[in-house]
């Protein structure tokens, strides 16, 4: 049976930031600035949340020519549902790692 656990404070911060603009693709550095999380916290969290199907990621063409493509993230429907549930104070996520 899959164990459920409460999202960490960092995960709550990230879910909150991402759910504010649910359909907008966000870049890692922008999320860092908005949430105040360090890259050492944000990226493992994004990886775990992507593995759990809470976040989707895609490579986006650069806005300026000659720049590399950037990885962008947004919440999936499941991630958004979790963010809403969390806002109501009852969100649990499947536990697959130390950070979730």
């Amino acid at each position: 049976m899959l164990r459920k656990r409460r999202p960490s404070k960092q995960m709550r911060l990230l879910l909150e930031a991402m759910s504010a603009q649910r359909l907008q693709w966000r870049h890692g550095y922008d999320l860092m600035k908005e949430t105040g999380l360090s890259s050492g916290t944000l990226y493992p969290l994004l990886m775990r949340m992507t593995d759990q199907g809470l976040v989707e990621a895609e490579w986006q063409e650069p806005a300026q020519p000659g720049r590399p493509a950037r990885h962008a993230y947004r919440l999936t429907a499941e991630g958004f549902a979790l963010a809403l549930a969390m806002a109501e104070g009852c969100g649990d996520v499947p536990s697959t790692g130390a950070l979730a």
Binding site: H27, G28, S39, Y43, A57, A69, R70, H71
Partner: peptide, 10 residues
């Protein structure tokens, strides 16, 4: 590897 590349670009 993809995540590593994403970090490198950011």
């Amino acid at each position: 590897r993809g995540w590593a590349l994403a970090m490198q670009i950011e």
